[in-house]
Design a protein around this nucleic acid. Sequence first.
DNA 1: TTTCAACTCCCCAGAAACAGCGAGGGCGGA
DNA 2: TCCGCCCTCGCTGTTTCTGGGGAGTTGAAA
Lengths: 239, 239
Amino acid sequence: MVNTVNLNQILEDLDATSALEELQGITEALRDAFSVDHIVYHWVDSAGDQYGCGTYSDEWRDRYLELNYHRIDPVIAGCFQRFHPVDWKRLDWSSKASRHFFGEALKYGVGNQGFSIPIRGPNGQFALFTVSHNCDDATWEAFTEEHSRDLILIAHYFNRKALEFEPNRQPEQSRALSPREVDAMTLLAMGYSRAQVAETLSISEHTLRVYIESARFKLGALNTTHAVARAMSRGLIVV
Amino acid sequence: MVNTVNLNQILEDLDATSALEELQGITEALRDAFSVDHIVYHWVDSAGDQYGCGTYSDEWRDRYLELNYHRIDPVIAGCFQRFHPVDWKRLDWSSKASRHFFGEALKYGVGNQGFSIPIRGPNGQFALFTVSHNCDDATWEAFTEEHSRDLILIAHYFNRKALEFEPNRQPEQSRALSPREVDAMTLLAMGYSRAQVAETLSISEHTLRVYIESARFKLGALNTTHAVARAMSRGLIVV
DNA sequence: TTTCAACTCCCCAGAAACAGCGAGGGCGGA
DNA sequence: TCCGCCCTCGCTGTTTCTGGGGAGTTGAAA
């Protein structure tokens, strides 16, 4: 793998991008620049609705989406719990589903090595930036070691553009919760019953209910559990 | 402001840091390297519990914490909604509380210029990395323009260390959920009622209940909402 | 000044969730 | 082979949550 990558040029190209299709082209240019098999940016969205760009084959991408592989993909699960970029080797491949998934991926041309960077944006947005290649462990470690910083920056810029191009996903910008509503949601997420929450906050249970309903309304949630889930995924509460 | 900053050296120093106190020292070194007034890393916990390190005066930090300024600080509010690093000038200072807050900050030696980078980690973790200085707009723009990429990387490395030093905030490991349990938790988090979930999964509501109870047990949760919250914060389900 | 959002309190009835009991078939690892 | 986990289904009763009303205060923004 050649290491004559001009980081500044890449980032400027990314900055200048004005359309979604161009991002696709940049993944290809990056793949060639880094001399790796694949570069993928993958926005992981709520209901399994997904979006991204990259150099994986169409067959693999379609299969991934169709079979809802994001649910068993250890890369997603692992990155979701981490802040660090992560080498695929360090993930948990112990379950049968994981190994089967990996086998499938190999068949469809994904490299045996991978390096994925989790990226998080406002409102619980979550995405991955992945580099994948076919080589031995030592080569791969040298590569990731050398380029991890550049890749973090590139991932960051990719996500900027993705957020820019997908304003539709932003209107989820629900109105912020009031302090009391945050309190209520937080305590509910901690497992308190309504009675306990009311007591903890020193208010009547009915008042509490008003907060919950208000929060539910602001979050567009169907019930309390949904409201708590949304509040969490949008980073409005931390448990 | 001098621009002889050795980014690699900084990042290596950060990587080698093994204790919280050293991070404080690094903010001071960075301040000198960049020749700015202040460098601050600020972990914002929505519960109001906060933590960070930086070169602000002790008086200002104490005042900030004591008066719960994080609730009215436009830097926090603004960064929380953005992915991009942001110049303080571009934030919303229209409210009375904001302007009062800014006046206070100036009195306590915070610069009139600022540049803050939002950083997000697992479980809704949120932090800011801020550079602040006293100068005119043009000078500041030139500075941020030149260093924004470096600052993004530095911010990233700071957050790595912060997460590393706060293991109690890391998700605890719990037994993995079975596929059916994941399905159940996911659909519940999407706002479905038990009846709807059962129908969606094509199982009886009683069976569904067994999954929910099982998941609740595995997660050590007190009720369904709690179980969903824990499953989400541990990255077992993605909603 | 007026308006608006936030915070507080109250009643009631129906829907939903919880808790505890039990049972049987299948599949994979020790 | 046996043990344990996963998946599936059933019953009964209690507790909790939800949704529909209405009403008063405060404080900050327009």
